[in-house]
């Protein structure tokens, strides 16, 4: 990987909210000058980014660029890591999630902002219970059977599992497990679904099914997807954010947002040279 990206932003200088794209009013999530620290180590610096409602936004960039780290800020999952600290603000429907008043309401926030992980993580419970778990803990008042069926249908898994809802979620294939995790996330009826490289552990056919699924899901949900696969980003996303990484003085590596725009702009006529190099496969 090249260590001298052109247009390297100067340390300490705050860049304006990237070049080119002006944020729309429909932004459901707004990152403002977000920096993430692990201890004293700065992992992501000064990100300004608006995620638009009912669109799929892809985060791309070389490994270590902080795209997953940033994603985990949106549901405050970084809280679980000892010593992790987030500066700046992330607004969800206009409210700053890092405001103190959310410290003891974070579970409610996470219900509204779901997440699907890199590796499928079905719980060692039945398929039915995997879906019902989130709904139960969040005090779902409706009909559970109906919710399970609806969620599995939305995740395009119902036909494959409707006869074996009592079987363990771990008995499914990798692609099915990942769709189970998507169904699980949908079941708590979130507004946003965050996806952290959801297809990286899957075979091409399973990947394709999930990509198709994403297109259907964006009717109802806002989706943010981290991917290291540029073809995937160009296939599924409406918006793309390109992140890059630069070495720091202390020998660490720090990620930053280079460019954010409509996907076709990023892939066809990016404004930044490093974006062009990355999407054309010349590094990363």
């Amino acid at each position: 990987m090249k260590q001298d990206p052109i247009n390297q932003p100067l340390s300490g200088q705050i860049k304006p909210p990237y070049s080119g794209y002006t944020s729309s009013k429909e932004a459901i999530l707004q990152a403002e000058k977000v920096s993430v620290f692990y201890g004293s180590y700065l992992a992501v610096r000064d990100v300004f980014l608006d995620i638009e409602t009912n669109k799929i936004t892809a985060f791309i960039g070389p490994s270590g660029c902080g795209k997953s780290t940033l994603l985990r800020c949106f549901n405050r999952l970084n809280d679980l890591i000892l010593g992790a600290r987030v500066e700046g603000s992330i607004k969800f429907q206009g409210e700053n999630l890092y405001d103190k008043k959310f410290d003891r309401k974070i579970e409610e926030v996470r219900r509204r902002i779901g997440m699907v992980f890199q590796k499928p993580t079905p719980f060692s419970k039945s398929i039915y219970e995997n879906i019902a778990f989130g709904a139960k803990i969040n005090g779902y008042q409706g009909d559970m059977d109906e919710l399970v069926e609806r969620s599995l249908r939305q995740a395009a898994l119902w036909d494959e599992v409707k006869d074996k809802l009592k079987q363990s979620g771990l008995s499914l294939s990798g692609g099915q497990q990942q769709r189970l995790c998507i169904a699980r996330a949908i079941a708590v009826q979130p507004d946003v679904i965050l996806m952290d490289e959801p297809c990286s552990a899957l075979d091409p056919i399973s990947t394709l099914r999930i990509e198709d699924l994403l297109h259907e899901l964006k009717e109802q949900y806002t989706i943010v997807i981290v991917t290291h696969n540029m073809q995937q980003a160009s296939r599924v996303s409406d918006m793309t954010a390109f992140f890059n990484v630069e070495p720091t003085d202390k020998g660490g590596r720090m990620g930053y947002l280079v460019e954010y725009d409509r996907t076709e702009v990023i892939f066809q006529s990016p404004k930044e040279e490093s974006t062009r190099e990355y999407v054309s496969g010349r590094f990363g």
Partner: peptide, 23 residues
């Protein structure tokens, strides 16, 4: 309400009762 524009009907189906769970 947690959020100003909390509108979707589905939200009312969830009773998170967080204080009880925290206790």
């Amino acid at each position: 309400k947690l959020f100003a524009n909390e509108s979707s009907e589905s939200d009312s189906l969830f009773k998170a009762s967080l204080p009880f769970r925290y206790n």
